Simulated assay, not measured.
Amino acid sequence: MTLAYATDGTAAPPAIAEVMQRLGVKMAYAKDEEIFAQDDEADLVHLVVSGAVRTTRLLSDGRRQVGAFYYPSDLVGLETSEVHRFSAEAICDAVVLVVRRAALKAFAGDDQVDRAIWEATRRELERTQDHLLVLGRKTACEKVASFLMSLAQRERPEGVAGRVSMPMSRQDMADYLGLTIETVSRMLTQLQGASVVEFDGCRKFKVKRWEALEEMAA
């Protein structure tokens, strides 16, 4: 079974999304610009409108861990605590709707917001469990294959051939998968050399052999 762990952001419930469209302020962020910082107060709710966002955390030894990637309609940094455990940055030019949590609760009601927080917590737990499995039990090739498959499934759930966007950098992938950038680049080269995928520059690829990629990602 393929793990769709790379792109399973927390989609906003319809009621919350509607309220955010009415109350939210659109903020534009350039590539690599910070949206919120690790340990900032979590008093704002963020909804990705366009582009893509990554969450990151700096470890005590200075290394960076990428937590997840978020896409349009995903809620980012919806915390159960009072501070953000991860920081968030735009991977590319992005637009994010921002609403104060208090305003959202006043307009949508505590129950709606609480349900959104619960759903966000459930999905984050599932994401974390899948991520731990990948980090601890998969080879480098399996990790990279799983990552590419999850990207492809997000854009093309029926397996239809076509170009798949990959907005994150090789370093983002490495920091997410617990690999070095050299290893990620080598695995991508191997997959292309085996005609499993075909890259169009650094940010787009096409799956040429779905069954082979699924087998590698399993």
Rank of each mutant, 00 (worst) to 15 (best):
Y5M: 12
A6N: 07
T10G: 00
P13M: 08
A17Q: 13
V19D: 00
Q21C: 09
L23N: 10
V25P: 00
K26C: 04
K26G: 02
A28Y: 07
A30Y: 09
K31T: 13
K31C: 08
D32R: 15
E33M: 01
E33I: 01
E34M: 11
D39R: 14
D40V: 08
E41K: 12
A42M: 04
V45D: 08
V48L: 00
V49W: 04
S50V: 07
T56D: 10
G62Y: 06
G62M: 05
Q65T: 12
Q65K: 13
A68K: 03
F69Y: 15
P72G: 01
P72R: 01
L75M: 14
L75K: 11
L75R: 08
G77E: 03
G77P: 07
E79K: 09
A88P: 03
E89V: 07
E89M: 01
I91M: 15
C92A: 11
D93G: 12
D93S: 09
V96Y: 09
V99R: 05
V99T: 06
V99N: 04
R100N: 06
A103V: 02
L104W: 07
D110K: 05
D114Y: 02
A116F: 05
I117W: 04
I117H: 07
W118A: 10
A120D: 11
T128Y: 11
D130I: 01
H131N: 04
H131C: 01
L133V: 13
G136H: 15
C141Q: 15
K143A: 14
A145Q: 12
F147S: 10
L151S: 04
Q153L: 13
Q153H: 05
R154S: 06
R156Y: 00
P157G: 12
G159C: 09
V160F: 09
G162S: 08
V164D: 11
M168A: 10
M168C: 13
R170Y: 12
D172I: 03
M173T: 14
L177M: 11
L177T: 12
G178I: 09
T183K: 13
T183S: 14
L191R: 03
L191Y: 04
L191S: 04
V196D: 13
V197R: 02
V197F: 02
F199A: 08
R203T: 11
L213Q: 03
E214Y: 05
E215A: 15
A217E: 07
